[in-house]
Design a protein around this nucleic acid. Structure first.
Length: 546
RNA sequence: GCCCUCGUAGCUCAGCGGAUAGAGCACCGGCCUCCGGAGCCGGUGGCGCAGGUUCGAGUCCUGCCGGGGGCGCCA
């Protein structure tokens, strides 16, 4: 059991004892005990606010309750605890000896890269994360890559935190846009101008040059979409984004699921006919207006397909939870989708829609806005070619999804200091360097069992271990909050702690005690493990040399 | 007009309802007999406005101001 868990149980036990003594109804689940590392070191190593939270129920004031709890805790202090005090409005602060850090480092090393920081907050919940799902009518742009990084890293985080995750890309391979794409390709194929509202890009001309199918807009459109999709797949793979499923909208429509879904809604009295079209009474379920499901020409609308698709996710494939990641420019469809999913009998909480705010690129004087519909958006390919896959990934995971961001491409490209990937990867390279130097000097890391980690007493060493110790909680928080950027923040913090340690604590210098050198080598290994886990969640490589 | 979303340092961004709001860049000043100085250490500088909830609000609620997005028988 971790030190943190021991503290949580101790607090929980003491609360229960006080409740019995005072005859009040108090209880606190050890899982729910709010323990945190105080922002200020003088407030101790760990702190809890239970007294403030529970004072009202206990019929007393926070400091009085805290006093009772502290007395009981001090009478039988948990392992490593050297003092328990009340502070401020009723915080209970714990001070621990450094042994708790050495224990936690030993735990990390024993568990290793595979098992460390694998908090089970998901309890096996089956989660589908759907993201990007950009129309296969052209290359994907930077905004897609941005939100795609989020979706991919969120999936990685959820998987590490005990969820069974499936990543899905919904392929909009049907409908008017595919016919428009086909018409554009055919026009170019015949050496003509692309029709009004068609796709103008260079890629259309290139595809047209090799097209040898019939003069049918649907056939040509499908053909082109397949090619474009291959390209998209390759682009995403280049930044480490992979999917478990590429789900075809055409397959949904051709399976008859759309009709079944409309029938299902009709059975619930939520469908009506008007002006030759079939409508969904979305306004009765929170949407701002009713929506068309089937147009007067007989075609299903995008919404009808999307509802059939979500019905498939929840009711056919049986995901416990679905997280859809959309660009903010698609938020207009959220209310209809939520209304439809509710109408299909799915508890609203099982569908989460995360909206990615717009991302702006500045490159010198040029400002580029990115959005699904932005014709001038730069492609993800060109960005990756420009700054590299690792920088692309980490930059996109620096800011939260719901923060509209701007970043200066020129700065990232030209001033390496502006680029956090160097700072983090340099830590990785330095770790690699230590290994190479040790090998060069014939220094071998001794088995952990024979190494005294308690020799690690330098403030830099202890700070580094403190940081490593946070990782399981960071992963848990990132999963619960759907916020992979928390991992980014942690990785940068870890790199900072490592650089500080590296600067002040020589490992292989002549005058370093061999026992201390061994402990430091293990600390370096622990850092390597932590970095590997963190960067792995971000989809960023951890190079051994730069 | 209605709906969504955002507003934190000069700039780009972090900040599960907790104690004296953090980084990076920029600017100023220190550190290379030493395992990678793409590094380390120090300094300057901030929660759009007004109410409310709370023991406690950058964080939750309401209004206002400002930016972005959306309100199709397009996808």
């Amino acid at each position: 059991m971790s030190v943190r868990d021991r503290l949580a149980h101790a607090v929980s036990d003491v609360v229960a004892a006080i409740a019995v003594r005072d005859g009040v109804d108090l209880s606190v689940d050890p899982e729910a005990v709010h323990l945190e590392r105080p922002a200020r070191r003088e407030h101790g190593d760990w702190s809890t606010n239970v007294a403030m939270v529970m004072a009202k129920d206990a019929g007393t004031n926070p400091r009085a309750l805290a006093a009772s709890l502290v007395e009981a805790l001090a009478a039988a202090p948990p392992a490593h605890v050297t003092s328990v005090e009340i502070a401020g409005p009723g915080f209970i602060n714990f001070r621990l000896d450094d042994g708790w850090l050495h224990d936690s480092l030993a735990d990390l090393l024993a568990e290793g890269e595979v098992d460390y920081a694998r908090p089970d907050v998901g309890h096996g919940e089956r989660v589908q994360v759907e993201f990007i799902s950009a129309n296969p009518t052209g290359p994907i742009h930077v905004g897609n890559g941005w939100w795609g990084s989020y979706g991919d890293s969120l999936a990685r985080v959820l998987a590490r935190a005990g969820h069974r995750v499936s990543r899905e890309y919904y392929v909009n391979d049907t409908g008017g846009q595919i016919r428009t794409l086909g018409a554009s390709v055919l026009a170019r194929h015949h050496g003509e101008e692309v029709p009004e509202g068609g796709y103008q890009g260079e890629y259309v001309t290139e595809l047209a040059a090799v097209y040898d199918g019939p003069d049918d807009v649907t056939v040509a459109g499908r053909w082109a979409a397949d090619r474009i999709l291959d390209h998209i797949r390759a682009t995403l793979a280049s930044v480490g984004i992979v999917f478990d499923e590429w789900y075809s909208q055409a397959s949904v429509e051709e399976s008859g699921a759309v009709d079944e879904t409309i029938d299902l809604l009709a059975e619930k009295g939520l469908v009506f006919e008007q002006d030759g079209a079939t409508w969904f009474r979305a306004s009765e379920l929170g949407d701002s207006r009713d929506r068309v499901l089937r147009k007067s020409n007989g075609d299903a609308t995008y919404l009808a397909g999307d509802l059939a698709y979500h019905r498939d996710k929840f009711l056919v494939r049986g995901f416990d939870r679905v997280i859809d990641v959309f660009g903010a420019d698609h938020h207009g469809q959220v209310a209809s989708l939520v209304a439809g999913v509710r109408a299909l009998g799915v508890e609203p909480g099982r569908l989460e829609v995360k909206l990615g705010q717009m991302v702006s690129l500045v490159d010198g004087d040029e400002v580029v806005k990115m959005g699904k519909r932005a014709g001038n958006a730069i492609s993800l390919d060109s960005l990756v070619a420009d700054i590299g896959p690792d920088a692309t990934r980490i930059l996109s995971l620096m800011s939260s999804l719901d923060q509209a961001t701007t970043f200066d491409l020129a700065a990232v490209r030209e001033q390496s200091a502006e680029n956090p990937v160097f700072y983090v990867q340099m830590a990785s390279a330095r770790i690699g360097g230590v290994g190479r130097k040790a090998a060069e000097r014939g220094v071998v890391r001794a088995p952990l069992a024979g190494v005294d980690l308690s020799l690690l007493t330098h403030e830099r060493e202890l700070d580094l271990i403190r940081c490593l110790e946070e990782l399981p909680e960071v992963v848990a928080d990132a999963a619960v909050d759907r916020a992979p950027t928390k991992v980014t923040a942690w990785v940068r913090r870890l790199a900072g702690c490592f650089h500080g340690f590296y600067h002040d604590c020589p490992i292989l210098a002549e005058d370093v005690d061999p026992g201390l050198a061994q402990a430091r080598l293990w600390l370096v290994e622990g850092t390597r493990i932590g970095l590997a886990i963190g960067l792995g969640l971000l989809g960023v490589s951890a190079p051994e040399a730069m």
